[in-house]
Amino acid sequence: MKARCPECDGEIEVYDDVINGEIVTCPECGMDFEVVIEEKGEIKLVPAEVEGEDWGE
């Protein structure tokens, strides 16, 4: 299914079997969003800070 980017209105592909907490990235503006599935099954995209850095192993 498709969703609209809350930031730039770009089109974001969301898998049909998506689960709460999965992360999608807008291909146009590059922002990350957490998928929140609401009670009626509607999908909401919430901006998420999901990237971090670490040293090498």
Binding site: G21, E34, V50, E51, E53, D54, W55, G56, E57
Partner: peptide, 11 residues
């Protein structure tokens, strides 16, 4: 359970 983070390593 979440949240899940995505790590980019400097190495």
């Amino acid at each position: 359970g979440g949240p899940v983070k995505f790590i980019k390593k400097l190495g």
